[in-house]
Design a protein around this nucleic acid. Structure first.
Length: 636
RNA sequence: GCCGGCGUAGCUCAGCAGGCAGAGCAGCGGUUUCGUAAACCGCAGGUCAGAGGUUCAAUUCCUCUCGCCGGCUCCA
């Protein structure tokens, strides 16, 4: 007898009967079951022995099965409406599911509601979903008859003789399962988008039409999902950027993927960069600067023209010589290194630069600030002796966390990427370097994950992802070994023994790219920057026109104390209006100047949280703001 | 680059089976002098992304270009 556990905690001993029959005796919504850890159909029989766990709608394991079934319902609906649509694949994904189709005439986005309606019908029909087995030959025959060329290709890659199909009504799909027992279980779903996707992700192959949707076990979960999407939309840096007058990017005259930083955005960036510069000096870095273009021979020597050409812009002709816009800063930093000889005593050298680079990105991949063509890397190259590299990596990891934490992130994921199939350098070098990276991460006590074969061709690397306030992960920090450039540029230093030695080189970027980091910060904070980054820290709002001179006087005092303050008084604008504007601009401090305050030489302090702290002397307000800014805290 | 969608005033969006281009907010002028998220009245604001085509007539239909969005691919 197998032990069967129900979601409500009840445990029974059963065998032979199907899970579905057992589930029907219970009131709860049971969608699937887990037999000895493996999720399977409720229609399967309960085995003679083992542990069975009934999966209720509330169970996280149910969601994936449910969404997979939702994908089938989608495909079913599409085949009813577009009989010639060919099926490709339709899996559950993180936020929902999709199904790829090939249409002879692709539907438009207006067709989504139609498809959704048809799906609702299929759900109402409560069609039983049943598994069928065919031999490989039968399956081949069946798919050929139905013109399912993509499924045929999938079948060709399958092992085993018995092939699993699922049937719901007149719809049959090659599928590994598992599924919920009836289409009636897919109650709370929503189609979201339609997009192109290559068959098997290969740009050389057919472009299919992908329909995205999501499904949840409960109405509330679906509502919560929609709410989160709306929240993400509200925080979207593409919306907040223009609203808060931070930047613009959609300017046809300037060009795609090129960012204009408006005064307020530039102010945020300047604060970030000032902090960055200060911390780099404090951590033993030397700042350098390098030009935006370099001669072709530089990029030939570095290997960029060989390995990175498709990411570079066409050369410029300068007096008959070819120059290239820089896609990376490294060759210049190496040139600085090579401008003189170095002793083993000089090491390590840490050259840092906020270096602006230009990379050709295909039009379709550009994405506001997150993916641009011209951007500033917070770049640095550490050149050191082999015996120093582990400590350098350790201190870089600590430094990275310090920089990310100060910017407001607290959740991190660390990844160690090892040697890829295509690589330069010697395998034993790779092993030494990878081991050094591993020891460094472990010595810092950071949990990490290994990504086998995910390193750059020139060396292994460590990446750090942060999680933002909406739970999304962003890769920011990267620390990369480079076996390639020291060789190519014949970098050396004189060792203790008087012999020329090859230094180790590590590239690292902490924030990644300032543009991208800024975009992430805007979304992380929903535009409400902490005080040290806020482009305007305080506004003084006169209750009526009479207090405008007083407001201006107070702003002068705040400014003198080092606060970024503005007086917003204007004829005809009420306090309510001014406060609304300040709230919309997410200004952290609003200082109200009315007749009472002018009389008492105070300002009534309101925080952007809505909290009213009442009248206070301007010196106290200035002290409060400068203190919060200095400590770079998140409080107000 | 590829598939699909989109581009109307500074912003958000109406309009268009082809017939003089509209609203709200912002701006400007005036009235109001106001106490914690939108006072009132008026004025101005447009090569309907750009170029070409079809038509008596194009913002509307067609083609191309540019830009944006959702994906695929790649990555910071």
């Amino acid at each position: 007898m197998a032990t069967v556990e129900f979601p409500n905690g009840e445990v029974v001993e059963e065998q032979g009967v199907s899970g579905l029959e057992l589930a029907r005796k219970q009131d709860t919504d049971i969608l699937a079951m887990q037999v000895d850890g493996e999720v399977c159909d409720l229609r399967d029989p309960i085995p003679a022995t083992g542990k069975v766990r009934m999966i209720g709608a509330q169970d996280p394991a149910a969601v994936e099965v449910l969404r997979h079934t939702a994908a089938h319902v989608l495909a079913h609906a599409v085949q009813r409406l577009f009989p010639d649509a060919k099926l490709a694949i339709g899996p559950a994904i993180r936020d929902g599911f999709y199904y790829d189709f090939q249409f002879s005439e692709p539907p438009g986005a207006d067709d989504l509601p139609r498809i959704e309606k048809e799906m609702e019908k299929i759900v109402k029909e409560e069609l039983p979903i049943e598994r069928e087995w065919m031999s490989k030959a039968e399956a081949e025959e069946y798919l050929r008859e139905h013109g399912e060329t993509y499924k045929q290709e999938l079948l060709g890659d399958m092992e085993g003789e018995q092939i699993s199909f699922y049937r719901q009504g007149d719809f049959v799909d090659l599928c590994r399962g598992p599924h919920i027992p009836s289409t009636g279980g897919v109650r709370h779903f929503k189609l979201m988008d339609m997009a192109g996707a290559y068959w098997r992700g290969d740009a050389e192959r057919t472009m299919l039409t992908r329909i995205y949707g999501t499904a949840f076990p409960t109405r509330d979960a679906l509502k919560e999902f929609v709410r989160r999407r709306e929240e993400a939309r509200r925080r979207d840096h593409r919306v907040l950027g223009p609203q808060l007058d931070l930047f613009t990017i959609n300017n046809e005259d300037i060009g795609a993927g090129l960012v204009l930083w408006h005064p307020k955005g530039a102010r945020v960036r300047q604060e970030l960069e000032d902090f960055w510069v200060q911390e780099h000096y404090r951590h033993g870095y030397q700042l350098v600067r390098s030009p935006h273009i370099g001669r072709a021979r530089l990029w030939e020597r570095s290997g960029h023209l060989e390995f990175y050409r498709e990411g570079m812009y066409a050369p410029l002709d300068v007096e008959g010589q070819e120059f290239y816009l820089k896609p990376m800063n490294c060759p210049f930093h190496i040139a600085i290194y090579k401008a003189r000889t170095h002793s083993w005593r000089d090491m390590p050298l840490r050259y840092a630069e906020l270096g602006t680079v230009y990379r050709y990105e295909r039009g379709g991949v550009l994405h506001a600030l997150l993916r641009v063509r011209g951007f500033t890397q917070d770049d640095a190259h550490i050149i050191c002796r082999p015996d120093q590299v582990e400590e350098e990596i350790r201190s870089t990891l600590r430094f990275a966390l310090h920089m990310l934490q100060t910017a407001g992130f607290s959740e991190f994921a660390v990844y160690l990427s090892t040697r890829p199939a295509k690589y330069v350098g010697e395998p034993h070098q790779w092993e030494l370097a990878t081991a050094a990276l591993r020891r460094a991460v472990e010595a810092e006590g950071m949990p990490y994950e290994v990504k086998e074969g995910d390193g750059a061709f020139y060396g292994p690397k460590i990446d750090i992802d942060v999680e933002d306030s909406l739970g999304r992960a962003w890769q920011l920090t990267t620390i990369q070994f480079d076996f390639n450039l020291p060789e190519r540029f014949d970098m050396s230093y004189t060792g203790e023994d008087g012999q020329a030695q090859r230094p180790y080189m590590v590239h690292r970027a902490l924030y990644g790219a300032m543009e991208r980091f800024f975009g992430i910060l805007i979304e992380h904070y929903g535009g409400a920057f902490p005080v040290w980054l806020a482009p305007v820290q305080a506004v003084v709002l006169p209750v009526s026109e009479d207090q405008i001179p007083y407001a201006e006087e107070m702003v002068a005092q705040l400014t003198a104390a080092g606060v970024r303050a503005e007086a917003w008084g204007r004829a005809g604008k009420t306090l309510r209006w001014l406060i609304r504007q300040a709230q919309l601009q997410k200004v952290p401090y609003m200082c109200i100047a009315g007749p009472r305050e002018a009389q008492e030489r105070t300002l009534a302090l309101r925080l952007r949280t809505g909290e009213d702290l009442g009248p206070q002397p301007v010196d106290d307000i200035a002290a409060r703001i400068t203190k919060v800014a200095r400590t770079r805290g998140s409080e107000l």
